[in-house]
Each structure stands twice: as structure tokens, then as C-alpha cells.
Design a protein around this nucleic acid. Structure first.
Lengths: 110, 110
DNA sequence: CACCACGGTATCCAATCGGTAACCACGCCC
DNA sequence: GGGCGTGGTTACCGATTGGATACCGTGGTG
């Protein structure tokens, strides 16, 4: 997931000045995820960077972090309304990238 | 221009991995501009960075650079069709940022 | 000839980014 | 009580970014 398909590879798009924030947001679009669940699709992201991105997203109000102590330790990350609203322009970008994939590749080659 | 208004200040959005590329594109949306004309609205961007952004945008096919030798040396930068098409999602982001300005500020404060 | 505008380059340097790897506290479960 | 899973943190370090500043070649122009 996200190896080749995302615009980040061909047209690096950074939201919040953070290399991975955009991908994290997209990983959360289908509902809350735990830290370890996020690590699966974002295998290329080091734990340090994932934490850093999540903290930044939390600080800026895009993501809500909820900690449950029992029965097992669980931490849930989910989009806030603000975060969900950001998905719209983000998807616009991704759609654009898909539509212009060939042109991007052509331009890059020459 | 672009001092406080652009999302780059509050929600850094980098297109092409480049800090200023987004602003450069927006400066070109109303037609061709010369290097020195771009320097005016982008006063905060050092010449080095501006050149770097323009070169990257040219390499990726978003901007066309045309050089005229006579009568005075002039270099025009203008958007290609690809570049113009990128303005759409870019504007979506800017509109989003304007709409959620207050929420962004609120989240940042707390 | 001297000077100026234009469109950049060159150099230096500090700060940031991001990857690797190791470590850690807590609680459960065998 | 020893190991494991969870959700991280810490230290270290090289690479990249980007800001400031000075400089430069070319071609008009007075």
C-alpha cells in the first residue's frame, strides 16, 4: 500500500510540512485505527516518524487520540471533523495525480 | 502578498517537495511573468530559492520558460496546460484553508 | 567608456528532516 | 516470574533544505 500509487512518490505533496501526514490522514479515512494498525499500511514509515506525524496532526486538530488502559492498552486515532474536511482537497490532489500520471511521467523523463 | 494569507504559513503545503512551488504557480495563474516580476510578490523568497523552484517546475512540466535575447534580455515563465490543471486542486486547498482558518488557529493555540 | 538592469550563480552556514537501532514501561498470560 | 504485545521514546548521525549575501556575464544606454 502506498508504495507506488500515491502522488507522494512522483509529486511529493506534504501537508503540514510533514512528509507522511497526508498518507496518515488517508489511512484514517475509513474509521479509527490503532497505532499498530497504522504501521501495517505505512510499513515504510519508521515508528519515530509515525509518532511525530500523529503528534503534529493531533496538535493541529486533525486527529483525536484516545487512550484506553484496560483490558489491554489500546490507543485509537481518528479523524476530527476538521481532519475529515481536509480529506476533500487531499483527494482532489490524488485524483488529479491519477488523471495526469502519464503526463507526469513524460515530463519527468525528458 | 502571501505574507499571511496563504496556507503555507499556517498549514504548510508543499507541492513537488518544494516550499515555494505552490506560491509560484499561483503567481503565474493570471498569465506569463518575468523573473523580476515574480520577485515582487515573492519578496520573501531568495533568488536562489525562486530559481530552484522554477527549474523544478520546468523539469516537471508545469511551467514553460522562454528566453528572448532582444531587444532587452527577457525571460518569461508561464504555466503549461499541465500546470494550469494543477491549479484546480491547489485552489481547492487554499479555499479549504480560508474556510477553516479559525479552526486552524484555535487548534494551534491549544 | 561607464553604468545599469536583468536574470540569475556561488558560497557559506545553520537548522531541520528523517532513518536506524536500541531501549522502555506497562499489563496480560502462561 | 518470564516472555510477549502494545505503544511508544531516545540517541545518534548523515543528508537535505533553505536563508543571507555577494558576485557575475550580457547587452543596451547615456
Amino acid at each position: 500500500m502506498f508504495e507506488e500509487i500515491c502522488p507522494s512518490t512522483l509529486l511529493p505533496l506534504r501537508v503540514g510540512g510533514d512528509k507522511w501526514a497526508g498518507l496518515v490522514l488517508r489511512c484514517l479515512e475509513d474509521g479509527p485505527r490503532r497505532y499498530s494498525e497504522l504501521r501495517v499500511p505505512l510499513a515504510r514509515v519508521s515508528p519515530k516518524m509515525l509518532t511525530q506525524s500523529l503528534r503534529a496532526l493531533e496538535r493541529d486538530g486533525f486527529v483525536r487520540r484516545t487512550e484506553y488502559a484496560a483490558p489491554v492498552r489500546r490507543v485509537m486515532y481518528e479523524l476530527t471533523d476538521l481532519g475529515r474536511s481536509l480529506l476533500e482537497p487531499l483527494r482532489a490532489f490524488c485524483d488529479w495525480a491519477e488523471d495526469h500520471w502519464d503526463e507526469l511521467l513524460d515530463a519527468r523523463e525528458s
